[in-house]
Design a protein around this nucleic acid. Structure first.
Length: 368
DNA sequence: CACACGTGGGC
DNA sequence: TGCCCAAGTGT
């Protein structure tokens, strides 16, 4: 009894025509009025799908509006300086999404004459466009019957079809793609995929699903068995690893602050930061380690004056345990593309991660 | 495959 | 408070 066999057995119980009618009529009457649903411009759909990755709708809305105002077309985004794009993304997180999006948009302009491609092969080859986003653009913008399997779809279908595979495992997505291919409405693939996600967001929620309001309750095998609260099966991820870190807010005689641009790969790539250094134990001599690091790496001579405060910032996989120090720049270095001395008022021209926004606030309120 | 990669909100 | 979650992708 393999997974495929189980899936086929569950699919046999679904009346596709009636399921689609119930799902799509619900979507037509209950769908939210969202800014990326104003039209089917593939570029707008694309931008929204990238922003919505691992990010709540309410968080995305203001970012989407501002982003489209700043970069209304693929040509505007392709031509924009990267720092402007990152600035528009500031606070959204997963910043490589923004850089990958711009990179892919440039490819669309150069290779596809500015038209977002409409074939699975071409669109899936774009940077930052994986199996989900490819299917989302193809179905929503071009109305092609392609699966767009995200967390919502896996949750909804795990319940409807009583699928007990661990949705945290990468291989499990294929099972749901197969289910979607079997059930997707040929008349309206766009609404079908969006309706599944809308249902997952509004009704078939992770905790306390509103089964009594569900338009496809009569099709749901988990509800029939009373096991909707046990699905989907999802294994837990590792807790973030603590990383002790010393950060310096170093000022020149002219009251400028030393800032540094992070490398173009890895965590918070190409964002700006106050000079910081991972410290071995988080114990003693953090200030001396930091001071030595700044001199060796940037050629800037500093003197740390005082320990301002400690705080934590939690990422997906690590937890920075930040010790903030203030001090002075004794000897400046020449400014480069990645090393600047700026006034406090100028900081907003640069893109900082949220972890450093907390430090900027200390500067602005006079704590430092 | 497992892990890197952010953030804010809910309970 | 701490943990889980949210329209995933790259390596």
């Amino acid at each position: 009894m393999n997974k495929t066999h189980n899936l086929h057995k569950s699919l046999e119980k679904i009346n596709k025509e009636r399921f689609n009618k119930d799902l799509l009529s619900w979507y037509r009457s209950e769908q939210r009025d969202l800014p990326w649903r104003q039209n089917q411009d593939p570029y707008r759909i694309w931008v929204s799908e990238i922003m919505l990755q691992q990010t709540k709708v309410d968080t995305v809305i203001p970012y989407f509006k501002r982003f489209i105002e700043s970069f209304p077309t693929v040509y505007d985004l392709a031509a924009a300086p990267e720092d402007k794009v990152l600035k528009a993304w500031e606070g959204l997180g997963y910043y490589s999404r923004a850089r990958n999006l711009q990179s892919a948009v440039k490819e669309v302009v150069e290779t596809y004459n500015g038209k977002v491609p409409d074939t699975p092969e071409q669109i899936a080859n774009l940077k930052g466009v994986g199996p989900y986003t490819a299917g989302a653009i193809l179905s929503i913008a071009y109305n092609k019957p392609e699966p767009a399997v995200d967390g919502n779809v896996m949750r909804v279908f795990s319940r409807i079809l009583s699928i007990w595979d661990d949705i945290a495992k990468p291989s499990t997505r294929k099972i749901f793609e197969e289910a979607v291919r079997k059930l997707i409405s040929e008349e309206n693939p766009s609404h079908f995929n969006q309706a599944l996600m809308e249902l997952g967001a509004m009704v078939c929620t992770p905790k306390s699903p509103s089964c009594l309001l569900c338009p496809v309750q009569s099709h749901c095998q988990a509800f029939a068995e009373g096991v909707q609260d046990e699905l989907p099966v999802k294994s837990k991820k590792k807790p973030p690893k603590p990383v002790p870190m010393a950060v310096g807010v170093l000022k020149t005689m002219e009251n400028e602050v030393l800032i540094h641009k992070r490398p173009s790969t890895g965590l918070l790539a190409n964002l700006w930061e106050f000079p910081n250094h991972e410290t071995l134990s988080g114990g003693n001599a953090q200030d001396e380690q930091l001071q030595a690091f700044i001199e060796e790496s940037y050629g800037v001579e500093t003197e740390i004056e005082e320990h301002v405060k400690n705080f934590e910032h939690v990422f997906s996989h690590i937890k920075w345990k930040l010790a903030v120090y203030s001090g002075n720049v004794v000897k400046k270095a020449s400014e480069t593309e990645e090393l600047r001395f700026v006034n406090i008022d100028q900081l907003e021209e640069f893109t900082f991660p949220v972890s450093h926004q907390k430090i900027i606030q200390l500067l602005k309120d006079g704590t430092i």
